[in-house]
Amino acid sequence: MRPARPVSRSMASASTSIVRIGTAGWSIASAHRDLFGPGASLLERHATRFDAAEINSSFYRPHRRGTYARWADTVPAHFRFSAKLPRTITHEHRLRGALPLLDDFLAQAGGLGDRLGCLLVQLPPSLAFDARVAGTFFAGLRRRWDGGVACEPRHASWFASRVDALWQRHAVARVAADPAPVPGAGEPGGHAGLRYWRWHGSPRIYYSDYDAAALGALAARVRAGLPPRGEAWVIFDNTAHGHATPNASDFQDLVRA
């Protein structure tokens, strides 16, 4: 792994696509500190290497708008956050009657300003596709937010061809997850202007390291799946043993090469 260096505006092909690479959160183990430049906080140091971070803590608890604003002020202008919708919306209300909760969340996360690049909607494994419920929720989301939206469904019913119209209608990217919880979940889908890979660690979710062969295969898939215009996000979520940081760093080098 190479030492830290300034992160570039984009790490993409000759097209206008941007590949954003980062981790879930921005913790840095002492063993990996030499990958980053100096900074007054872990987030500031994270942003010397990567140009994206996924905010997962918003799933578990609300943050004040001022906290989001402070995070935005910490990172450079090209950096973007992906913010995960609260579990009260996705897991407790299961998208039903959740638009007032979405208003509260967007009012808070709006403190990120233009540093908020994407909203992540992770659905519970037990939530089956219901066209009316999903259509109402994503239409309401789109009336409130015109930036990137990525959804990670984990029930097999969301991967039927009839769901494609929903993704396209509301410009929602379907997350490519590893490990894939159901057939088809390992490949990106939905809105072609955004691609979003979430690598959770395989075979042991959140814990397993990815070897060079796995990262190389992912790099090839990302290159092949780049939208001609738009963004691709690659987020490493295997944070439990600290593997996300070196995996993201090695993957960054592969994409640049």
Score class of each variant (00 low, 15 high):
Ala217Ser: 13
Thr74Asp: 13
Leu95Thr: 08
Leu254Asp: 09
Pro227Trp: 03
Ala219Pro: 14
Ser202Gly: 08
Cys151Gly: 00
Pro125Gln: 13
Gly117Trp: 14
Trp145Lys: 11
Gly66Arg: 12
Asp104Pro: 09
Ala47Ile: 02
Val172Arg: 04
Leu35His: 06
His241Ala: 15
Thr239Leu: 13
Gly189Trp: 07
Gly140Glu: 11
Leu120Lys: 05
Tyr60Cys: 12
Ala139Trp: 06
Gly184Trp: 04
Arg61Glu: 11
Pro181Val: 04
Ala185Pro: 14
Arg45Cys: 06
Leu123Ala: 12
Thr90Phe: 06
Glu187Ser: 09
Gly184Asn: 03
Asp211Asn: 13
Arg198Ile: 06
Gln252Cys: 13
Gly37Trp: 08
Gly148Lys: 01
Gly216Phe: 11
Gly190Ile: 03
Gly22Lys: 00
Gly193His: 01
Phe50Arg: 02
Ala214His: 05
Met1Thr: 10
Ala134Val: 01
Asp253Trp: 10
Ala219Gln: 11
Leu42Met: 06
Arg169Phe: 10
Gln108Ala: 11
Leu194Lys: 00
Leu226Phe: 04
Ser41Ile: 03
Val75Asp: 01
Gly135Val: 00
Arg142Phe: 13
His243Gln: 11
Trp197Asp: 05
Tyr207His: 15
Gly25Pro: 08
His243Leu: 07
Leu43Arg: 00
Ser41Asp: 05
Asp34Gly: 03
Ser15Pro: 01
Asp211Val: 07
Thr74Tyr: 04
Ala248Arg: 05
Ala131Gly: 02
Ala173Pro: 08
Tyr68Glu: 08
Trp158Lys: 03
Ser13Met: 04
Asp164Asn: 14
Ala173Gly: 01
